[in-house]
Design a protein around this nucleic acid. Structure first.
Length: 259
DNA sequence: ATGCCTTATTTCATAAGA
């Protein structure tokens, strides 16, 4: 079984590349973030042609998450109990059941700057997510939470720590919030970089950052113990970051033994 | 090589991303 997660940065803008990627990589389950599209406009028909069922959560031009599955899709849950908003809840979390797996696609708030209201919202959102996942794990032992966490868990996950002094994504409270998620019994799945030393998943569009491999590891796949024990391989598909019209994020692809 | 920002909307300017 193959599971993937990808921040596509607009499914409208990325649809041709997404369809090519699905046809080539053939994930059984794909979590998407930053779809930036309302559910009624989601390109369900094109994706269904490749054999996928779709669950999408979106509200207008920002945020938006989805799960595509060709191994069944049921138990759709949009958002979570006591999900914080800014000020109203946004389209940042979606959970579904695909075969034997409970799968969450999440898009954690950016935080903008450490002194902003959005940063406080980010921390509040992560803390609330922890509570929701604790309850979810009690019900679904085989759980995967994947998406864009907008946190680089360690200094090894950014290309130059000096550049990020005073910035979000690297502050101790953000890193602690992710550590608190792992403390629920989740594993931060280690993915192979296809090139270079570090499995970065994001490179800014500007200034040739990708070509210099000045990236960040901010997209994560968190797996509960029964799922982590089944992993045979995981890699960052940096090929998807190349060429004309890419997302600024690359997908993570995880292979599991069948249950 | 992969090549120096992109996407969206309240569009000819601005907000957001990270």
């Amino acid at each position: 079984m193959r599971l993937a997660t990808w921040n596509v940065n607009s499914i409208r803008a990325r649809l041709p590349r997404l369809l090519d990627w699905l046809a080539n990589v053939r994930p059984d389950i794909a979590c998407l973030q930053e779809t930036k599209i309302p559910p009624e406009d989601f390109p369900v028909a094109e994706i269904a042609e490749l054999g996928y069922e779709v669950a999408a959560h979106g509200a207008g031009a920002w945020n938006g998450v989805a799960v595509l599955s060709r191994v069944g899709l049921s138990g759709r849950a949009v958002g979570f109990v006591d999900e914080p908003g800014f000020p109203d809840p946004e389209a940042r979390a979606l959970a579904v059941t695909c075969g034997d797996l409970r799968v969450w696609s999440v898009y954690i708030p950016n935080g903008r700057t450490p002194d902003s209201d959005h940063y406080a919202y980010k921390l509040k959102w992560l803390a609330a997510l922890r509570g929701a996942l604790a309850a979810e794990l009690a019900e679904h032992p085989a759980l995967v939470v994947s998406g864009d966490f907008n946190v680089a868990p360690t200094d090894d996950d950014i290309w130059d720590p000096a550049v990020f002094v005073g910035a979000t994504h690297v502050t101790p409270p953000e890193r602690q919030a992710v550590a608190d998620l792992l403390a629920l019994g989740l594993t931060d799945v280690e993915a192979r970089p296809l090139k270079g030393d570090r499995p970065y998943t994001y490179w800014d569009y500007r200034a040739g950052m990708f070509h210099q491999n000045k990236g960040m590891r901010i997209d994560l796949v968190l797996a509960s113990a029964p799922v982590a024990a089944r992993i045979t391989d995981a890699y960052v598909d940096r090929e998807a970051r190349k060429g004309k019209g890419p997302s600024d994020h690359a997908p993570i692809v995880v292979d599991l033994t069948d249950p």
